[in-house]
Simulated scan of single mutants.
Amino acid sequence: MTINEIQDELIDDFAFFEDWMAKYEYLIQLGKELPLIEDSYKKDEYLIKGCQSKVWLHADYQNGKVIFTADSDAIITKGLVGLMIKVLSEHTPEEIASSELYFIDQIGLKEHLSPTRANGLLSMVKQMKLYAVALTVKN
């Protein structure tokens, strides 16, 4: 699946829920399904700057694709990073770096997150794209 196909699927998934409590439950569920980051990556150097809660993110490069793992000490934030991994992980660095993430606005995430969480989400996106660019240069 392409990044845009995954985004379209998520837009459909979120449209299924009638209220934001149900959407938050879905986000929490995504956080629980997150591929767990190895403890060795739970260090300051893997923390995403700009997130109010602690979010560790690691990128691995396998067979031409970027594989992200992450964790957070906050359940909603863990769901947000799970959402981003669902969209961006297992794609090439070029696809990730050039992706236009329109689903965030379309599912109404921005207006339903606190300003600090919204900033944290933007920091996650930025960091994931930076990892992708770095891997493009390195490989």
Rank of each mutant, 00 (worst) to 15 (best):
M1W: 10
M1N: 14
T2V: 08
N4F: 10
N4W: 12
N4A: 14
N4R: 15
E5N: 13
I6T: 06
I6H: 07
I6G: 12
Q7V: 04
D8M: 13
E9R: 15
L10V: 06
L10I: 14
I11K: 11
D12R: 15
D12I: 13
D13E: 14
F14K: 07
F14C: 00
F14H: 04
A15Y: 03
A15H: 11
A15L: 08
A15N: 12
F16K: 15
F16C: 09
F17S: 09
F17T: 01
D19H: 12
W20K: 08
M21E: 14
M21P: 14
A22W: 14
K23M: 08
Y24I: 11
Y24L: 09
E25H: 04
L27N: 05
L30N: 00
G31Q: 05
K32D: 14
E33V: 08
E33F: 06
L34D: 05
L34I: 03
P35D: 05
L36G: 11
I37P: 10
E38G: 09
E38A: 07
D39F: 00
S40K: 13
K43Q: 13
K43T: 14
D44S: 10
Y46Q: 11
I48Y: 06
I48R: 06
G50Y: 07
G50H: 09
C51F: 04
S53P: 06
S53V: 05
S53H: 04
K54I: 12
V55T: 05
V55K: 01
W56M: 02
W56F: 10
L57H: 00
L57N: 09
H58S: 06
A59K: 06
A59V: 06
A59H: 08
A59Y: 07
A59I: 11
D60W: 05
D60P: 03
Y61P: 05
Y61Q: 03
K65L: 11
K65D: 02
V66P: 02
V66F: 04
V66N: 04
F68V: 08
F68E: 10
T69N: 01
D73V: 04
D73Q: 02
D73S: 12
A74V: 04
I75D: 06
I75H: 13
T77V: 12
T77W: 05
K78M: 03
K78D: 00
L80Q: 01
V81M: 11
V81D: 01
G82L: 00
G82I: 02
L83F: 12
M84H: 13
I85N: 01
I85V: 15
I85M: 03
K86A: 03
K86I: 03
V87Y: 04
L88G: 05
S89P: 00
S89D: 02
E90L: 13
E90N: 15
E90H: 15
E90T: 02
H91F: 09
H91L: 00
H91Q: 01
T92R: 06
T92F: 02
T92I: 12
P93M: 03
P93C: 06
P93H: 02
E94Q: 13
E94A: 15
E95F: 00
E95Y: 03
E95D: 09
I96T: 11
A97P: 09
A97W: 04
